Simulated assay, not measured.
Amino acid sequence: MKLPKRSRTHQLEELSIDKFKSLLPIEWVYRTPTHDYGIDGEVEIFDSDGYTTGKKFLVQLKATDEKRIDKASKLRMGIEKLNYYQQLEQPILIVRYMAESDDIYVRWFHSLNPNKDKISEKSFCMLFQSQHHWNDEKLEIISHELRSLFFIQ
Rank of each mutant, 00 (worst) to 15 (best):
E89N: 03
F46A: 10
D136L: 01
K74P: 04
I119R: 10
L12E: 12
I79L: 13
P91R: 02
G50P: 10
S111A: 13
I26M: 02
K19R: 12
R31G: 08
R96C: 02
L3Q: 07
V106F: 01
I152S: 11
A63F: 06
L146T: 03
E89W: 11
Q131Y: 06
H133V: 00
N115D: 12
L23D: 06
K2G: 09
E140P: 11
V106I: 15
H10P: 02
S130G: 01
V29R: 03
F46S: 07
Q90M: 05
D18C: 08
R107I: 06
E42G: 01
Y105P: 05
L23I: 13
S130H: 15
Y37A: 00
A99Y: 09
K19P: 04
K81I: 08
R76S: 15
M77T: 06
P91Q: 00
F151V: 05
P91D: 07
L146S: 01
I94R: 01
V106W: 08
R31V: 09
L146E: 02
F151Y: 10
I92Q: 03
M98I: 15
E145C: 08
S123R: 05
N115L: 13
Y97G: 02
E27R: 06
S111N: 08
L93R: 01
Q11R: 04
H144I: 04
I119Q: 07
E80S: 13
Y97D: 04
S7A: 13
L149Y: 15
I152Q: 03
R147H: 13
D49I: 14
T32V: 15
E121Y: 01
V29A: 03
Q87Y: 08
F46K: 09
L82V: 02
V43S: 04
Y105R: 14
F150Y: 15
K5H: 08
K81Q: 00
D103A: 12
E44S: 03
S48A: 10
D103Q: 14
I45P: 00
S7H: 11
Q129L: 10
K19C: 06
I17S: 04
M1K: 12
L139F: 14
K55L: 05
M98C: 15
K62T: 10
E42V: 15
K62D: 09
